[in-house]
Simulated assay, not measured.
Amino acid sequence: MVLPPDIFYVEDDHDFAFIMQYAVKEVSESLTVSIAEDGNSAIAQLQRYEDEKHRPKLILLDLNLPGISGLDVLKRIKEIPFFKYVPVILFSTSDNLNDVKTSLEIGANAFLTKPSGYHNLITCVKSLYDFWFQQNRSIN
């Protein structure tokens, strides 16, 4: 049985993914993170979660992925009724307004530009945690 993480993070930059795991643990020791390193792996992992009837509480999705792009992964997520109420946040180095607009039109719940520096990442993750895990009401 595949247990879902609190945060399912799709990120091809191994170093950033590693640092993100530490940042999440620094914000809340109880949060779990699972990482897929490309779009194909993300879709396969989401299929396993669906098969096991387990949902992550939040999906963070990099825009620029090898193979299947983040936007294509987002489209696929939005086509799966099982994930209808799982918030998906695009988390990218891009701050291009067209990327933001397209992501939101496809169904992203938010678009965040990755912060630079560990302290700024902690602040960002803390904000995500406070809103999506503490304040937001979900039916997940």
Results as ranks from 00 to 15, higher is better:
V2S: 10
L3S: 10
L3T: 13
L3D: 12
P4R: 05
D6E: 05
D6Y: 00
D6A: 03
D6P: 00
I7P: 07
I7G: 03
I7L: 01
F8E: 11
V10N: 08
V10M: 13
E11W: 14
D12Y: 07
D12A: 12
D13P: 04
F16A: 09
A17W: 06
A17M: 02
I19S: 08
I19E: 06
I19C: 05
M20W: 05
M20F: 15
Y22Q: 11
A23M: 08
A23H: 06
A23C: 05
V24Q: 01
V27L: 00
S28C: 07
E29S: 07
S30C: 00
S30E: 08
V33H: 02
S34Q: 15
A36V: 08
D38S: 09
G39H: 07
N40Q: 15
N40H: 04
S41A: 15
A44D: 14
A44S: 11
A44T: 05
A44W: 02
Q45W: 11
R48M: 08
Y49E: 08
E50W: 01
H54T: 07
R55F: 02
P56Y: 02
L60G: 05
L60M: 13
L61G: 14
D62G: 13
D62I: 09
D62P: 11
N64H: 13
P66I: 07
S69M: 09
L71S: 02
L71F: 06
L71Y: 04
L71C: 01
L71M: 00
D72A: 11
D72E: 15
V73C: 10
V73W: 06
V73Q: 10
K75C: 05
I77Y: 04
I77F: 12
K78D: 03
E79S: 14
I80N: 12
I80Q: 15
P81D: 15
P81E: 15
F82P: 04
F83T: 09
F83V: 05
K84N: 09
K84E: 13
K84M: 09
K84I: 01
Y85A: 04
V86Q: 09
P87K: 03
V88Y: 09
L90P: 13
F91M: 09
S92E: 08
S92F: 10
D95E: 04
N96A: 04
N96F: 03
L97M: 06
L97A: 11
N98G: 00
D99R: 09
T102M: 07
T102P: 06
T102G: 05
L104D: 11
I106F: 10
G107I: 09
A108C: 10
N109P: 02
A110C: 12
F111S: 04
F111E: 06
F111P: 07
L112T: 03
L112C: 08
L112Y: 14
T113Q: 14
K114T: 13
P115C: 05
P115K: 14
S116Y: 12
S116C: 05
G117F: 08
Y118V: 03
N120P: 06
N120Q: 15
L121S: 06
L121C: 03
T123C: 02
T123K: 14
C124V: 01
C124E: 05
V125G: 07
K126V: 03
S127T: 12
L128G: 03
L128I: 12
L128Q: 06
Y129Q: 02
Y129R: 04
W132C: 00
W132G: 03
F133C: 04
F133E: 02
Q134T: 11
Q135G: 00
S138D: 07
I139C: 01
I139P: 00
N140P: 00
